[in-house]
Computed example of a mutant assay.
Amino acid sequence: MDHLPDFAELAARATPADFRDDPLPGWAGLGTLFGAPAARLDELGQVDGWAVAAVPFDGTASSRPGAAEGPRALRTASVVFANSLASLGTWEMLDTRTGEAFRYVAPQVVDVGDLHVYPTDTFRTYQAVAAESRSLCARAGRVIFLNGDHSTTFATFSGFRAAQLDRAAGRRIGFVNIDHHFDFGRWSALHGALYHGSNSRRISELPGMRPEDIAFVGVGDTTRFDQFRSLVEQGFQVVPAARIMRTGADAALRPVVERLAAVCDAVYVSLDIDVLDTAAVTGTGHVTMGGLQVAHLLDVYEVLRELPIGALDVAEIAPRYDPTGATAQVVARLLFEFLFRTGRHDPGLPHWRFDEGG
């Protein structure tokens, strides 16, 4: 029989410092977004980088509930990318889809956990989330909200906007809604005035909000003709999914980005994951046909980098409908690329045209 090592001796020789800098596998690490340090909101000081908070609420679901489970699934999925960052280091990278060179560099991120929600009381949830979002946004340079159903975006946006106005009255705040739907409903027979299909309308009704500072990106579902005509006539900006797929994200979004960048002091970006075709991501409550593909969404976020983004959210991830976990992985990767990809530039490879093949 082969000689076995002396396990007691091996253990005695080891110290935690021997392993401290080794990367963890993708399923290990803190259960925060990208393994970020955890903090309590009421104990949080000023944060120069990004702060993260979640709103696990789906009390206004009208199709398939489950979005309240999305924030936890997203945090779990994100650890894979945080651990890969530890393995990659700061090498110069090449995106072989776009031909862009860049580096992954970890920004400061802190996760304050979940804001208060009340599963059967939408109004109290709104009050709590708006108040706590305002407090968080007053302490952080930029904020990521991991939201449940899309109704919660009204509360997180309200808190963000209030914090911006606390800093300086008269600041102009833009809102970009990346969604297969307009979410401009006035009233729901099931839920009343606050529900997942009214958040954009409620945001537009806040004092001082201007239609031209609100953009709907990726819309592709059917909608009432009179509502669509009214939105356009009032000056809301609309970028249909079909235009993004036909002309590319840069050409489709260029007028919106230039407009918002010129007039807005800060912009809030909200993502309803049903903007993607359900054939691409199944883990959401609303089945989408004819939506964007994942590559289109990556391109959309690259263009939106040019905006003064002060906060963003992701909503409507319902992991129970995606046993593969791919939906949460897609959103985690999207956030990872947006936060950690820096120093983007053309590497100058004249012998290789990425848009024509090598």
Rank of each mutant, 00 (worst) to 15 (best):
F57I: 04
A279V: 11
A53F: 01
F160C: 05
F216V: 01
L312E: 06
F19A: 12
V238N: 01
R134A: 12
A193F: 00
Q127C: 04
V275T: 13
L94F: 09
A130C: 10
A328G: 07
L292H: 05
S78W: 08
E132C: 13
L41M: 12
L74G: 08
D277P: 12
G26H: 02
H191Y: 09
Q234P: 00
S158G: 11
H191L: 09
G310D: 11
P211V: 13
P16M: 05
F336I: 04
T282D: 00
Q46D: 09
R97W: 07
A155M: 10
L146H: 08
V294H: 03
L74Q: 10
H345Q: 11
R124W: 00
T223K: 06
T60W: 01
R72T: 09
R134P: 08
S133H: 03
D265F: 11
V109I: 15
E205Y: 01
H351K: 07
T278V: 09
R333V: 02
P119I: 07
S151A: 14
W91I: 04
G113M: 10
A315N: 01
V238K: 08
S158P: 05
D149A: 00
A155P: 00
A280M: 07
V267L: 12
G49H: 05
T15Q: 11
F123G: 07
R20H: 04
S151K: 02
G99M: 03
A73H: 02
T278D: 11
G358E: 08
A280E: 10
T342H: 13
G325C: 08
E356R: 15
G141P: 03
L206P: 01
V117N: 06
D58V: 08
G192E: 05
D265V: 11
G325D: 06
F160H: 04
A326W: 12
A318I: 10
L115G: 11
R341F: 04
G235T: 02
L298S: 02
V263H: 15
P107C: 09
A189P: 00
T15R: 15
Q227G: 00
A8F: 04
T288W: 05
S198M: 06
F157L: 13
V143T: 15
V256H: 01
A311M: 06
A193Q: 15
T96G: 02
F354S: 08
A61R: 04
F160T: 01
D274Q: 10
T247M: 04
I144K: 09
S230Y: 14
L44P: 08
